[in-house]
Every structure is written in C-alpha cells, then in structure tokens.
Design a protein around this nucleic acid. Structure first.
Length: 486
RNA sequence: GGUCGGAUGGCCGAGUGGCUAGGCAGAGGUCUGCAAAACCUCCUACAGCGGUUCGAAUCCGCUUCCGACCUCCA
C-alpha cells in the first residue's frame, strides 16, 4: 500500500504517481512565512497541510528532508520593485530594529506552529543568512544572459527568458496576453519589460537592511531566496516544492525561471499548492483585513466567534477538508468539528476498556486499507477521517457490548488509531493533565456509585452537575462510568 | 477585461458515469433512577436549461451566480 501514492502536480495539472528522484530520500521545500507580522489562520492552514504531507511521507518510511524558509528580508510592499521592504516599514512604525521585528514574529510563528502540533522542518533557513548564495545565483543568471543591472538594481529579463523557455508553465497563462494586460508602470521605469522582476534591489540611503554586492549596497528580491536556499539544501532538482496557491502565479513562476536560467533545470519534480481559507466565501488575507489571528481563535475574542476553539479542534477542522479545496471558516463549522473531534478522542480513550471475546464481527484491516487508499489518493484526509469514524462506531459498539471483537481486533483498532489519528493526522490529546487526576476521578465516581446504589440521587446528581460545571462530563455506561473533559 | 477554479441536503465537507462518504444539527427508538454519552433507524442533496448515454451530481454545451490569480499576501 505504501508504493501507490499519487500526488496532484500543478506543473502537469494532473495526479501523478509519486516516484522520488532518489528513494528512499525525499526532498521537500515549502515557502514559509514572511515574518513582519503575526501569522493568521490562512497561513497556518498551509503549514498544517504540509505537515500532514510530511507526516504521511515519514509514515511511508521515506527519509524526508523538509526545508521551510523564513523570509526575513527583501519582501517589498508593492509590485514596483521600489520603496520599502516590509520589515523596514514595520520597524519604523514601531521604532525598533528590523531584526527585532524578525525575531519577534519568528518566535510567534514557532509558538503557533507548536500549538498546532506541526513537526518542525528539517532545516529552516533564513533569507538574511543566505545573502552570499543569492548573490552568487544572481551573478550566474547575469552571466547566462537572463538578467541585467540598472543603477544598482538587477532585473530578470522575462521576455528573453521566454524565448527559449515556457515562463508560464505553472499556470498555463498566455504570455502574450499577460504582456498586454500587465499594468503600465509609468514613464521612469528602469525595467526593459513589464514582467521583469528584481533579483537585487539597490538600497536607498535610509535603508537599514542592506548588504554589499557587485552592484553596490542593496538587498535581495523576494523570489531569489527560495531558489538559492532550495538548491543549496536539496539540490538543483528535488522532489516536492510546495506553498499556498496564491504563490503559484508570481513567486513560483519566477522561482522556476530563476532556476532554469541559473541551473538549466526544473527545480522540482512535483509542485503542490494548498488552497485558501475563506471567511464568508472570501479569501482570508492580511491586506483584506479579514484575517483571524490564532489567539483570537483560541480565546474566542474574534467578533465572528461565540467562544474559543482549541488548536486541535482547528487542526481537525482543517483536515476535514482536502488541502486543494477552499475551506470556509465559520463559528458553526468549528462547533461541528469540535464535537466530532471530541467524539473521536473519547472513542480512543475507551480502547483500554473494551471487553474482548472469541468471536469477531469486525474487519479492522479493511478500514486500515481504506485509510491508506484515501491518503494515497493525493492525501485525502477527509476520507481517511470518515473511515476513522467507522472505527469510532465500532469501538463504541464493542464498549456497549453490541459488537463482538477479539483481542487482536482491539489491538488492530488501537494500532489504526495510533497510526492515523496521532502519527499521520498529527492530532493529540489536549488535556495532558488528564492522567494526573484519573485516580481522583475514580474515587469520585466510586462515591457517586455508592450514592446511586442507596438511591441517593440528590447526592449523585449533585456530583454529576458539580463536575459538569468544572468541565468534566460523566458518562454512565453498562461497564461503569467514564468521564471526559469538555 | 484575461486566465483558472467552483456552485452538493439546515451547516461544514468527500465523491468524476450505475453501488448515492463522514462530521455537526434535526426526528424517532434502545439503554438509563433521570440526564448525558453510546448504539439503531429516519431526514437521501447535487445552481438552472438543454444534450450524450440503457443509465449523469459525475461527460458536453449554454445560462446565472461565486471565488482565486493577473498587484504584497500561505
């Protein structure tokens, strides 16, 4: 089952059998955040999606080198290849050093990624740490004739490149129309062509983040960092390059052009793009002002939410949609995921309490098979989750004594849940302190049980209601009482 | 304006030609001191109009609506 993985490749616009260039090694590069402000939930979705992909590749026993960059320099405000980079602007607003901005939001990003239980990448390189590599790459591109310098700024020559290469290979757009439709940049434009983009940008006198280069003091353009760092750590051609769908048309298109112009090869065999998180049908984005910040979600302070939702609820919510579909974010949808996630985890908690028999009425292997089929089909986590709920139904039914299962069945159920719920979907129990109070809960449940035996329902209900108020729910079953945290 | 992608039951969301996921919500039932939980049953939808086919949510055409990209954004 592990060798039938199929991945949708943006490059070819179809699903392809995944065949790594050098198995069992897999190189995966994902465009990381630009750390000039807090990550919002839309950003998080992309990284959760690639975490799922990373985890599944690891589960299939691939030796994955997962590289995800931190963009901490060179990201301009507008499209004119002039003016401030985002860090300088933010730093000036807050009257701090640009690198303080970088530090603050890098830490914040890592904190949020931890809350979402994403595995850290193997390498997390920064743009500022790879200025030399970027300069070398730019020199090579100039040497190969695909870039030109103008007043200390270096531009990539798209028209020249497109004579021998398919510039729009990733998005299949018509280059002629693109040239015709691109906005007129005005009179004093330094670029030869409208689609040309900056590889290196001359620093103005007030610009703090600057480095020396063959073209004077300046800083790198946005796209070159990913090309330089991915080839440094993964080679000139590697297996998977990923990022949000919004990056395909510009950032990734330019990355491909840069790599081709420098190395004469496609940087990645498979291009994967995750879809957007929407709010009321519109894309969540920083500039649109409809971005949810993770803490607004966890605390419920956002006006669209009735209460807070935990990181695992949100992760589960994201995984209930396929990574290539848009996902609409709403209070109602989160409530549904919250209930479903708790139900899933509650069933897992029952696994140690199941009575086994000699008979078997369940086929766990078939469920496992279907979970693999789903994941092998371009990481279809929603279907895998649907199958896991079949396992949940079976577990509950065994617990109720309505379905017979052998000890092997129960072990298989546990192994299924361990593999898929925890290792692959990356979910986790949210109340780690549960174990610490379990013996106390056993004691309280025993007290209540005694009260019930003597038909002292006033006391038993008082215990139940009191615990409910503390966020602990008791569940009376045939085999005794269990409890869960709300 | 150009390019691309969507429109699935009350909500979220899978599904690419017949067997009509799943979660949540709703209805009934079983269990229970009661409740909750759990289990069982039900609610059986594919924007509209044509066409292809023995058969279409799924393929084709047209219409309407929505979104993304084309400009910084995961």
């Amino acid at each position: 089952m592990s060798n039938k993985l199929v991945i949708y490749n943006t490059l070819t616009r179809k699903k392809e059998l995944f065949e790594p260039l050098n198995p069992p090694f897999v190189g995966m590069y994902v465009c990381g955040p630009t750390v000039y402000s807090d990550v919002h939930l839309g950003n998080c979705r992309t990284f959760v999606s690639f975490d799922l992909i990373y985890r599944y590749l690891l589960h299939l026993k691939y030796k994955v080198r997962y590289v995800r960059n931190i963009t901490d320099a060179g990201h301009l405000e507008g499209d004119r290849d002039e003016g401030d980079d985002k860090f300088s602007k933010k730093a000036r607003l807050e009257q701090v050093e640009p690198m303080e901005i970088v530090q603050r939001y890098t830490i914040g990003f890592h904190d949020v990624m931890n809350l979402f239980n994403t595995l850290p990448p193997s390498i997390e390189p920064t743009a500022t740490g790879h200025i030399a590599e970027q300069i070398e790459m730019i020199k090579e591109i100039i040497e190969n004739g695909f870039a030109y310098e103008k007043n200390g700024t270096v531009y990539f020559d798209v028209e020249k490149y497109s004579k021998d290469h398919n510039y729009t290979i990733l998005t299949n757009r018509n280059l002629e129309e693109l040239l015709a439709n691109t906005r007129d940049l005005g009179g004093q434009d330094e670029k030869h062509g409208r689609l040309d983009f900056a590889l290196w940008i001359k620093a103005k006198s007030e610009h703090i983040m600057r480095w020396p280069s063959p073209w004077g003091w300046g800083f790198p353009g946005w796209h070159i960092e990913c090309s330089a760092m991915s080839s440094k750590y993964l080679g000139e051609t590697f297996d998977i390059h990923g990022g949000g769908m919004d990056l395909a048309a510009t950032h990734h298109t330019n990355e491909i052009a840069q790599s081709q112009a420098c190395n004469h090869s496609q940087p990645a065999k498979y291009w994967m793009h995750t879809n957007m998180l929407t709010v009321n049908g519109a894309r969540m984005s920083k500039s649109a002002g409809n971005g949810f910040l993770p803490h607004e979600l966890f605390t419920g302070s956002h006006p669209l939410l009735s209460r807070g939702f935990s990181p695992m609820t949100v992760r589960f919510f994201m995984l209930q949609a396929h990574y290539r579909s848009t996902l609409d974010f709403s209070n109602e949808a989160l409530e549904a995921s919250d209930k479903g996630f708790k139900r899933l985890m509650a069933a897992y908690g029952l696994l140690g309490k199941l009575k086994t028999s000699e008979r078997s009425e369940v086929d766990v292997a078939a469920i496992r098979e279907r979970c693999y089929d789903a994941m092998n089909d371009d990481f279809n986590s929603p279907i895998a989750i649907a199958e896991l709920f079949e396992a949940v139904r079976i577990i509950n039914s065994i617990y109720d004594g309505k379905t017979a299962a052998t000890a092997q069945d129960v072990a298989a159920l546990k192994s299924l849940m361990d593999d898929f719920v925890f290792d692959i979907l990356g979910l986790k129990e949210e109340h780690a302190q549960t174990e610490d109070i379990s013996h106390i809960m056993d004691f309280i449940i025993q007290l209540r049980h005694e009260a019930k035996l003597s038909k002292d329902y006033v006391t038993s209900d008082k215990i139940r209601n009191g615990l409910q108020a503390l966020g602990i729910q008791l569940k009376d079953g045939k085999e005794g009482t269990t409890w869960t945290k709300a």
